[in-house]
């Protein structure tokens, strides 16, 4: 009997210490996962403001896609999510301290984000993109992206670059907005005119 006392005490102590550590971590994760928290960096404010006016936040369904929904792996990919988020946070703090908010090039970071956002991020919510009977063109293009022909490959952000972070003069609501239109292949038109 006596030989169980020490391990039990240790397990108890472990739980006692781990519980607050885990819940603090969890609480921190939740606290730092809101768009409001992201916008607490000056560098991110314009992106936040654009998101506020976008249809990814304003629609009749009441669905809201937060920063993390697109920019980080899904929280159920716990390890991936945890490390990516921590890494991003550390990188952002370091960049802010080293270069100041003036060192943040929004255009450059926009391109980095397009390259970084995996199709899976979009497809978490937009799962049914092959059946859009009133938009045959989109069906055609989505098929080319999901089942690329030999030698071709397309990502969501190749063609969709006007969804969220567009600087708008007023709030856009999906239910009142003009018909959505993708921007088309970004690889076309890199010459001659800005993106």
């Amino acid at each position: 009997m006596r030989r169980y006392v020490k391990p039990l005490l240790l397990v108890g102590l472990g739980l006692l210490l781990a519980f607050p550590v885990f819940s603090m971590t969890y609480y921190t994760m939740v606290r730092t996962s809101t768009p409001g928290f992201c916008a607490s960096c000056h560098e991110i404010e314009p992106a936040f403001n654009a998101w506020m006016t976008s249809t990814h936040r304003n629609n009749a369904q009441g669905l809201v896609a937060d920063c993390m929904d697109c920019h980080l792996p899904a929280p159920h990919d716990t390890v991936d999510f945890f490390y990516k988020k921590t890494l991003h946070g550390m990188k952002d703090v370091a960049a802010h301290v080293l270069h100041g908010s003036g060192g943040y090039d929004r255009a450059e970071n926009r391109l980095a984000a397009y390259a970084d956002i995996k199709d899976g991020q979009c497809l978490k919510c937009h799962r049914n993109i092959l059946s859009i009977p009133n938009n045959r063109g989109a069906m055609l293009a989505h098929r080319a992206a999901l089942y690329p022909a030999e030698g071709e490959s397309r990502t969501c952000t190749d063609c969709h670059r006007n969804l969220v972070h567009v600087d708008r003069a007023r709030y856009e609501y999906k239910q009142y907005a003009p018909p959505y239109r993708a921007t088309g292949l970004s690889t076309l038109g890199t010459r001659g005119a800005p993106l």
Partner: peptide, 25 residues
């Protein structure tokens, strides 16, 4: 009202025909 442009470009076509437009480019 909807903003429209007279000139339609291969980039516009690429929204539905991405492979053809990319090859053409």
């Amino acid at each position: 009202y909807i903003p429209v442009a007279a000139a339609v470009s291969p980039k516009d076509c690429s929204r539905c025909h991405p492979d053809e437009s990319a090859q053409y480019a």
